[in-house]
Design a protein around this nucleic acid. Structure first.
Lengths: 230, 230
DNA sequence: GTCTATATGTGGATAGAC
DNA sequence: GTCTATCCACATATAGAC
């Protein structure tokens, strides 16, 4: 009830089921509408109507539209990134100077991003994240970059160590396949799960499983150097 | 010079280097700006300014913004789809009742889409196509759907025959990886090549090569049925 | 066919009363 | 902190003269 002065944090979602203070209602409504129509496609007016707040409140709490988007990202990405970092660090420590397992590195990075079915906004955010990651608007790209860059670098460095059979250029392009596959999976998965609610849980598991199998095989495939080995 | 009454066709790009009649200038300017800022991010005003035409001409030639987008798609996709269909049909005929090669089917579908470096608008369109394929706007999705659906179905059917080791659900999700990888590759590839001009040709070849290696490995990876074979 | 001027709608953001 | 009323920029689209 109190603490409206605090910035948007991870517990915003958990307290959502309760009475719903204005700020939380705005965040959840925005998340839903951004997922449905994209960032630029969802107007502040439609968000205000869905959240049942007045015209000025969004600017009061979030300054501007971009601030609202950023708040949503901070709310959702923080716990995801924590989990990713922990798991990546564990792999790093375990493998020492050797080459880590491709499969494990991919799973550590991807699973926390895909498996977000609880707190019903989680799946909607999957779709937002996917859409924003290819949005041409520099402001949007900046939000995405700020949210993911640190962990992504960590992931990339570790995955690179796991793929000594690839040249830098080969690795570069294959990484595109990883991000693209994740991105596409999240748009659809987000849409499906949004429509199906909790019934989408089974779908989500299969999707994750197939994604990991696919990407692992793709990264392990020999480069130009090795001809038929591996 | 004449034939301004004809609808936008494949030769619009080739005659672009000439004097440049208004309609062609609009098409090329729109292609460039849609690629740069996305469909909804590029205003008709900015397009008119770039094409050096007046406010009314776009509506005169294309009725509305969506008509302009559709004209661009028709101009670029028609030849691409022809090539795809030919190559898919060739594989189909060659393999008869047997199972076609995964590698060949993927290449037939993907190569015509990625290798579009000539007619400098080709790469810009790659990016437009990628962006629009995940655009939440129903009108945009309709344009994309109308352009690609027929050939996509053909491709899917043939690829399905090439993957008897997968269940329908496994196949469904792995297809997401294909479309996602293509999509992401095309956004970047389109951006890079747009900035680099013809110097991006080498990049384009490597990108295509790695994409095919990656996707082939991913699709060939055994499903749940087969455990360690292949 | 080509242009200028403008209609009409909607967006984000603010001022200022309560 | 909360609300109403409004500003202003910019979008698509059209009317109608030349």
């Amino acid at each position: 009830m109190a603490q409206t002065g605090h910035r948007a944090s991870a517990d915003a979602a958990s307290s959502a089921a309760e009475v719903g203070e204005a700020k939380t209602r705005i965040l959840l409504a925005a998340e839903r509408l951004f997922a449905e129509h994209g960032y630029s496609g969802a107007s502040l007016r439609s968000i205000m109507a869905a959240a049942e707040v007045n015209t000025a409140s969004i600017h009061y709490y979030f300054r501007h539209k971009e601030g609202l988007l950023r708040a949503i990202f901070e709310m959702r990405v923080a716990p995801m990134n924590e989990e990713r970092q922990e798991r990546l660090a564990a792999i790093e420590q375990q493998s020492g100077d050797g080459t880590p397992e491709v499969d494990a590195v991919l799973r550590a990075f991807i699973e926390p991003a895909i498996r977000r079915t609880r707190a019903q906004g989680g799946q909607a955010f999957n779709r937002i994240s996917a859409l924003c990651s290819v949005d041409p608007d520099p402001a949007v790209r900046q939000v995405v970059f700020d949210s993911y860059d640190t962990v992504s670098r960590h992931f990339t460095a570790l995955l690179r160590k796991a793929c000594p059979h690839l040249t830098d250029e080969e690795f570069y392009w294959r990484q595109h396949c990883i991000y693209g596959s994740m991105m596409y999976m999240r748009t659809d998965n987000g849409r499906v799960a949004y429509l199906l609610g909790d019934r989408g849980a089974g779908h989500s598991d299969t999707a994750l499983q197939q994604l990991l199998v696919f990407l692992t095989a793709g990264m392990k495939a020999p480069g130009d150097g090795a001809v038929a080995g591996a």
